[in-house]
Design a protein around this nucleic acid. Sequence first.
RNA 1: GCGAAAGUGGCGGAGUUGGUAGACGCGCUGGCCUUAGAAGCCAGUGAGAGAAAUCUCGUAGGGGUUCGAGUCCCCUCUUUCGCACCA
Length: 807
Amino acid sequence: MGHVSNYSIADAISRYKMMQGYNVMQPMGYDSFGMPAENFAIQHNSHPRITTDNNIDIMRKQFDMMGFGIDWEREVSTCHSDYYKWGQWFFKKMYQKGLAYKKTSFQNWCDDCQTVLANEQVEDGKCWRCSSEVRQKELEQWFFKITDYAEELLDFSEVIDWPERVKTMQTNWIGKSFGTEIWFKLENSEELIKVFTTRPDTIFGCTFMALPPEHPLVTSWLIDEQENSKMHKFCDMVMNEDTITRTAEDTTKEGIFTSKFAINPVNGEKVQIWITNYVVMDYGTGAVMAVPAHDQRDFEFAKKYDIPMKIVIQNMEESLVLEKMKEAYVEPGILVNSDKFDGMESTESMKSISKWMTENSMGKETVTYRLRDWGVSRQRYWGNPIPVIYCEDCGTVLVSDEDLPIKLPENVELGKTTQNPLLSVDDWVNVKCPKCGKSARRETDTMDTFVDSSWYYARYADPKNDKMPFTKELADSWLPVDQYIGGIEHAVMHLMYARFFHKFMRDLGMVNSNEPFARLLTQGMVTKDGAKMSKSKGNVVDPQYIIDRYGADTVRVFMLFASPPDKDSEWSDEGVKGAFRFLNRVWRLFDENLEIIKETTNSHEFTRKENLAAKEREETQSKNSVTLSGDEGSDSKLSTGIKKLRYSTHFTIKKVLNDIENRMQFNTAIAAVMEHLNNVYSIKDVESLNEAEKAIFAESCVAIPHLMYVFAPHISEELWNMIGKGNMLHETGLPDFNEEYLIQDEITYVIQIMGKVRGKINVSVDATDDEIKKLALEVENVKKSLAGKNILKMIIVPKKLVSIVAK
RNA sequence: GCGAAAGUGGCGGAGUUGGUAGACGCGCUGGCCUUAGAAGCCAGUGAGAGAAAUCUCGUAGGGGUUCGAGUCCCCUCUUUCGCACCA
């Protein structure tokens, strides 16, 4: 149901844009590589090639039944070699540009299964399959150097309508911070330990140094240690905690003293070196100068292991005393115990201290990013093979372009072993070295599926190209994507990888834009009984059943009406019936009044909303149609009820256009049409209306399919055809409203006394403030409430209310 | 633990810049229509008091700013999403 909801939104937007005259491309693709597909196939004792293609067929059928305007000529599936060939091609480009490289990193490893586990496959530190202990194993992995683009990824100036929260999350993820690298010497050695800190102002308070077990220095010390020494045991323990446990760990700081010391360059003091579980290798320099008095984690650690503390920043309001401190003092203050910097304000001192350290070769100012390079290696079968061959003589050799795609071997038996099946396909793994012709081996790692999904949007521009991923002309004519729709769960990773890839493609000269997605809508998920629909929970709704029973338009209207697109929406069987009832009411209105509508509308049409696309192309387009009720003669022939109806028609057009155009809020747009429909039904005796009134009535009816088209295209086109219009509704463009009919001669003012509503008055539009005040004070209930009070002030909010302050 | 959001009737949700809280829909109640049901139509529907006019309370909880707060500020709680203990 999630997909149905997702594409109901996309289809509504694209139909709206089509009505505006744009040439809209609504493509469809399947991110079909990856673990879920592989596991699904194993479960069903089948092959992912078969199961994914099957699932795609089912989805395509459903999308067709929903009537989504998808351009099937551009369908893309990431697991088909005509697509993944180009992923391999991009990998080569990354490598050639120095953006793909290999390094070791720690992975969740199960010894029994001989395989790497994803975080989600680790349950309580144990393998999900065999329940044996998971350990961290150092493996060679391929990485993409996304950090080269860190600075540019912080720049959102070229996206138009991205949700603020997505931008914030990405900015925090990149985590740029200005700080200082400080060089400590190892005692009795010339070896330097570099630490990174954002608080150089606290350097004089450093009392120990914290290293993670992965630190190279620790590794070198461990060689001299006994196998079963305490230090070995501690390091093994910390490193074997899987990433999740180590990440989710509350505050239990643990460590072991190395018996070694480092020298603080600013004062020559000896500081203890500890190995700890709370420092990570991947950030900064992988080493921390610990200042327990002014960092909470260091504080907790120092308390636990009884390490000295030193106050170097004094609280200006309340003097800090070491013995009494219950937590670290992290606020700004005045420097103390800091030699010649004593008395400086801490925030201001940072620059001076960094500068002084730079001049005296104790360190340097640096900028650090939290962002790490993107690990793309996966030890799995159902993914895109990495186009690399390892030769004993030539080393790492790229597969030549003529040999792409490297096709995944399909005659593998899944589920027999827990390892990557590719390892055992000998005639696939064993190849001749492209350079020297000697026997060599293929890389058996496949790529992270985020690689596949990082550029597919560009492939839509030129999906059948077999010479290159796409031509520049076609890509530039379509990109950037005007409207991208995806779940909020992709706020950081997918959306950032795609931005990175786009900039990379730009630097290859393949596209000329800087961003892949101009506008972004993060849609909510469909829930049932308060939880996300999933097979395991058994709370799924089969779209097929609902479509068969109520039709595609009902499903679309319900989905769009249930909640704003960026919020989760709760599935409700009753709510679906409500949408169905609404469409039936629309149908009946036309059925019952067909003759009147037909007779009176054939010579008239709404003023067409300006054709925006044409305007952009600077073509002149004459607005040749007339407003229907504009030439019906004097208003005096019209009853009040009919004038109200005319107001409703034009007000609704205005509201719906605004809700879609400026707010993308389909639920309120549909509500407005429902309200209008109620207004139309309030006209009882249609036969007895005069000609002018009948025309207004007909206009109010015709507005409905016009406005409903983007939500419920099938019934709207059908009604349009029924009233005898020759053309198709979607070719007519959007209707426009006539400002003239929105002018009201009376305005309701609410009267508040001390903020509470005490009455209402209807006032003519051109009444003066004094007249309004006078009328307000004449209201019975207002007089009653004011009895015995003095009026201090009267505030008039134009066209809204009168507020009286009285005591 | 960190980062980002959200919390409004029995339910889904309205409430564009601080200005009538609860639009619209669902559900429920009563009535009409019908041999009966389905469908449809009409009326009502936040809580409490009252015959009514009307009054009091009410937007997760607690404070604050304002003539006026669902909306702005501070604190707390709960839920959702993401995560790589960010020095």
